[in-house]
Simulated assay, not measured.
Amino acid sequence: MEETGTKEVVLVDENDRVLGTMEKLKAHQDGLLHRAFSVVIFNDKNEMLIHKRASDKYHCGGLWTNTCCSHPRLEETVKEGALRRMNEEMGFTTSIHYIGQFIYKTAFENGLTEHELDHLFVGRFNGEPKPNPEEVEDFRYVTIDELKADIEKHPENYTVWFKEIVDKYLTELLAYG
């Protein structure tokens, strides 16, 4: 299945300087560093909105992850891309706040390698998402304690980048709002 959004990714160096673009699957086959974003949304009860990726995604299908994660287009800012994809994937928009960025690299059993400079955003939303079934298999709001306990008990059910976000950036995310 093809993601309904970006077909190309923006290749970058470790300082987020643009090196060019490449077809998304090719960049993942070659394990090249590219620009990405992750959006984490909380409701007013401080529950995090997570989603289960559609099972037929090209990698990490069927795994739970943060509210929205994808790649910006070359002609848009990372924040514009995050807002666009949040609407395309989860069916809503809300204001988001930039937290920071991190680089991670992980190889998958299917031969693809995720190597991303991931820009992290946080926001608040209390409504009911209307997710795109081509992108999202399920979603739920979860307390931080429930989430951390489940990740510890079943780490295989979560994406690599989301586990890193929860492990290293939860304090900054919770400080927002």
Rank of each mutant, 00 (worst) to 15 (best):
R140G: 03
A54P: 00
I144F: 01
E156H: 10
N43S: 10
G61K: 01
E137W: 00
P131L: 04
H34V: 02
I151E: 07
N15Y: 09
G111F: 10
I96S: 02
V10S: 03
E89W: 02
R84I: 07
H28V: 07
K163W: 08
V18G: 03
T106N: 11
V122R: 03
D145Y: 01
K45W: 08
I96N: 01
V12D: 05
Y158F: 14
R140Q: 10
H115W: 06
T159D: 03
N157A: 13
L63Q: 08
P131N: 05
Y104K: 10
P129E: 04
K130M: 11
L174H: 02
T4P: 14
Y176M: 11
T77C: 06
D16T: 08
N46E: 15
V78H: 00
G100S: 11
A149L: 09
F162N: 01
T67S: 13
E135C: 08
V40W: 00
F125M: 06
E135L: 02
V166C: 07
R73Y: 15
L33P: 00
N132P: 05
V136Q: 01
C69H: 06
T143W: 02
G123Q: 09
W64C: 01
G127H: 08
S95L: 13
N87Y: 12
D150Y: 04
K168P: 04
Y104V: 09
V12L: 07
G111H: 11
A82T: 10
L147P: 02
G177Y: 13
L33Y: 08
C68Y: 02
I165A: 02
I50S: 00
T65W: 01
D150A: 01
W64Y: 14
V78A: 01
K52I: 02
K45S: 10
T21V: 15
P131F: 04
A107E: 15
Y58A: 08
P129Q: 04
E88W: 03
L49R: 02
K57A: 15
L170P: 01
K153S: 11
L33C: 05
N43Y: 09
H51L: 13
H59N: 12
W161D: 09
L112N: 06
E2F: 14
E2H: 12
V136W: 00
G61F: 01
W161N: 11
A27T: 06
G81T: 09
E14T: 14
I151S: 07
A149I: 05
A27Q: 04
N87W: 06
I103F: 10
V40A: 09
E128F: 14
